Amino acid sequence: MSTIHDILDPSWMRLEGTFDEQVVKLFYHVTLTRDEVEEDLLRLFRDVKNTLRTYWPGCELMPYGSLYQGTAFKTSDVDCFIQIPILYKTGRDTVVLTARDILSHRSDLFAQLSTAINVPVPIVKFVHIPTSRECDLTFDCPPGVSNSKLLWYLFHLDKRALDLAILVKYWAKIHNFIGPYLLRTYALLLMVVFYLQQLRMLPTIHALQRNVPYVAWRVWNIAFQEVIYPNNNQTSLKHLLGGFFKFFSYYNFEENVISPYVGCSIPRKRFRKVSSISKHFTLYEGNLRLKLCESLNIETPMCVQDVFNHSSNCSVLVFPDLGKNIKKHFRTAAKLYESESDENFLNAIFVKH
Rank of each mutant, 00 (worst) to 15 (best):
L237S: 03
A111V: 07
L15V: 06
K74I: 08
L67F: 15
R218I: 06
D108S: 13
T115L: 13
F271D: 01
Y250T: 10
Q234N: 15
S148C: 05
N309W: 00
I222E: 05
I4R: 13
I117V: 15
V215S: 07
N313K: 03
F73W: 05
K291H: 14
P85Y: 04
L44E: 07
N287I: 08
H156I: 13
S11M: 01
P63I: 10
Q69F: 00
A333P: 02
I117C: 14
F247A: 11
H175N: 15
F281V: 08
C59T: 13
T332L: 13
F81I: 01
S295V: 00
L151T: 01
S312E: 12
E338N: 10
R14A: 10
L183W: 01
N344I: 00
Y261V: 00
R133C: 05
T90G: 02
F224G: 08
I178T: 14
L283S: 00
H206E: 15
W220Y: 06
K74Y: 03
D140S: 14
G242C: 05
L157I: 07
I129R: 15
E60N: 12
T75C: 13
Y88N: 03
Y261A: 00
F350M: 12
G179A: 05
I298E: 00
I123A: 05
C293G: 04
N344C: 07
S275V: 05
F350G: 03
N211I: 06
I82F: 03
L208M: 15
P203E: 07
F177C: 04
Y153A: 05
K159F: 02
V30F: 02
K173E: 03
V124Y: 13
H310S: 01
Y284I: 02
E226L: 04
G70F: 04
T185S: 14
F244Y: 13
T204I: 07
T98I: 08
L113M: 10
E285Y: 07
N147C: 11
L336P: 09
L113Y: 02
V316D: 03
N221E: 07
S114N: 15
D140N: 13
T33A: 06
S132T: 12
F281T: 00
E340D: 01
P320H: 13
F81C: 00
R53M: 13
P180Y: 08
P213Y: 04
T54H: 09
L241P: 08
L182D: 00
P267Q: 12
I84F: 02
P203W: 04
S236L: 09
R272A: 01
F319A: 06
L109R: 09
T71D: 03
V121W: 08
A111E: 14
N297Q: 02
P260G: 11
I298H: 04
I7Y: 00
E340S: 11
F19P: 09
H128A: 12
L188Y: 01
F224D: 01
G179Q: 09
P267N: 10
L151Q: 06
F81Q: 01
P213T: 12
S76M: 11
V318G: 11
F244I: 07
